[in-house]
Design a protein around this nucleic acid. Structure first.
Lengths: 340, 340
DNA sequence: GCGCGGAACGTAAACGTTTTCACACGGGCT
DNA sequence: AGCCCGTGTGAAAACGTTTACGTTCCGCGC
């Protein structure tokens, strides 16, 4: 059995209350006894039992992160951003991921109960009904990249629309007229926004009827297939904008296989700026999502909610910006353009 | 305030004991009352308070992961492997990373106290003294890729030595005679083992005095510089084996910049098999570390320790295998060879 | 000299569970 | 009929903290 506050109290000839006060620096203890208690505690290697502590303080110094998956660069970065910000505030992070269905997500949510001070939720299953059903009203929660449009919950999104629109406009600015878009999983909220950005940029250029949307599912293979499809079209597109980098990379393979030159014949662009994007040939133009920043922002928002529980005026839904990263694959001059 | 077990008991006209029994399925409750209690609990959206529960059960259903950093593909994969295995057992994961020094690591360790059933530790600060000082003896712990050679703690390592040796032997088998090795940070345990594998493979081929070790620090730039250095040597190496993929990629840039052909003039190989390795030109031969598997194995080992606390015979230190991934950059035929 | 206030410390309640123990009850056995 | 045992239930202790509330003691002002 582990050493408890009582052991320390006994060894130091004081009551448990004094030990608690001394160790937490709450005052009401002589400097002398405080010192003695501290020494005894150190000697006994006393470490307070956090479960007991948070049972009574109702604080856990921990935030929960509910994620759909842990695969890939995106989540890795997101977690990193969250952890960075959490660490700066002395908070810990309880992560739960890979829940295939809503039931699993619900179980995970319950398991967080009484273990976290707040929740960061990024889950495809987190629709409004699900949240109402499984979320205790009292637990501060921030939704990340959710399609839920409720203002009962705080939410934080990536500016998918703006990024996609900027990239499309950039391609148009380079003189490309027939720009195809490779979409991702239909249910995906990000994809929808990216597609909207693409369409509206075309519309603004008076090319609304020129939109070409090819199916995809975020994998390299689907990008490859979409590339083949694009090559078979007449007239052939002169640019391909993929909803994520992996598909863009697959598309590049299809083009190089067909001896079609990039960017001379067909420009290619992606979305995300995964580390690999810089190393493929030609280096991939893309829209950089500042994912770590997203995680940090989400955590900071959550902390604000935790500290001011009854903030009457919830902050508006916020978006974190993107950057246009221009490399060789689209034929522009290399550049990074930060967007709000 | 949140709804507690007492509220459920009151509403269902039973004692809290019965509620506990009914909800945990411990028996000793009529099917009928059990049903009634369950209904009331559901209606009230009762969720047990985990801190209270684990205070008395002394189980948290959570394992802690102490990591040095969250950056890069390695940790992303590791976390993913851990999470996968944890999830399969209904365990949660409390992660703590980015502690710059031993003090921070110690604080993190204390914070885990009473919140986790076991610990996965992968930290440069985790030397033996540190562990003795900060680890309560009772807490099951598995060390990952640690240089600590104590058998007081369970440990799990990547077979850096075997992987490096296999790659070196492969290069030798392809007829390369002057193989240079780009090292990583000196303090790094993995690097030392990889270097040892390289040296011993050479020694076994009677080429012990042909070892060429260039400095590096795991970054792309350091690989680039090492590449330059190698090019300046006379006689020039006919193969370069980098201690990780990023350096190998930097090295590739240096070679292509100097119009040196890979693999014809100089073969190149890396270590890790990061996703990018497949996409650089030429595709990089490398040693694949099954990181997710490492995470899973570590967790499974930890679970075994938790379930059998006083296992007199601690299992021997285990290693997880590597795979030789042969791609174009070393001039062999594409292949993946799994090694124990 | 007496009361009063504050500082230092102790006692005990509280947090929300699980679990041990005791109790009541009914039915099958001798 | 009496006994015993199993089964369902409740009361209460326990887990390790924090903190509200007492108590003691000392110094100070009147």
């Amino acid at each position: 059995m582990s050493v408890t506050i009582k052991d320390v109290a006994r060894m130091a000839n004081v009551s448990v209350a004094s030990v608690s006060r001394a160790l937490n620096g709450h005052g009401g203890v002589t400097a002398e006894t405080q010192k003695r208690i501290r020494e005894v505690a150190a000697r006994l290697r006393y470490v307070p039992h956090n479960a007991a502590r948070s049972l009574i303080t109702r604080r856990t110094q921990t935030i929960g992160a509910l994620l759909p998956d842990l695969h890939g660069a995106f989540f890795s970065e997101l977690i990193r951003g969250i952890d960075l910000a959490a660490r700066a505030r002395g908070l810990y992070m309880l992560v739960s991921s890979s829940h295939g269905d809503a039931t699993e997500a619900a179980i995970a949510l319950r398991a967080m109960q009484g273990r976290v001070d707040g929740l960061l939720v990024m889950s495809p299953h987190a629709d409004e009904a699900f949240l109402d059903e499984n979320l205790p009203i009292v637990l501060p929660t921030v939704l990340i990249n959710s399609h839920v449009r409720s203002d009962r919950h705080a939410a934080l999104d990536v500016d998918d629309y703006g990024g996609a629109r900027a990239m499309t406009e950039h391609l148009l600015g380079l003189g490309r007229k027939r720009i195809a878009f490779i979409a991702g999983p239909e249910v995906n909220h990000d994809v929808q926004e990216r597609c909207r950005g693409y369409r509206e940029a075309l519309a603004a250029a008076g090319l609304a009827d020129r939109a070409i949307v090819l199916p995809g599912d975020f994998t390299e293979e689907s990008g490859y297939h979409a590339g083949k499809q694009a090559l078979a079209m007449v007239p052939r597109p002169d640019a391909i904008f993929a909803a994520n980098d992996m598909m863009a990379i697959g598309c590049l393979s299809a083009l190089s296989e067909a001896k079609v030159r990039t960017p001379e014949d067909i420009a290619v662009a992606g979305f995300d700026d995964i580390p690999m994007a810089r190393y493929v040939t030609p280096p991939l133009s893309t829209v950089r999502v500042r994912i770590a920043e997203l995680g940090e922002a989400a955590l900071e928002r959550l902390v604000r909610m935790i500290e001011a529980p009854d903030d009457a005026a919830p902050e508006p839904r916020t978006v974190v910006g993107t950057e246009l990263v221009v490399r060789a694959s689209c034929g522009g001059n290399d550049a990074v353009r930060r967007r709000a």
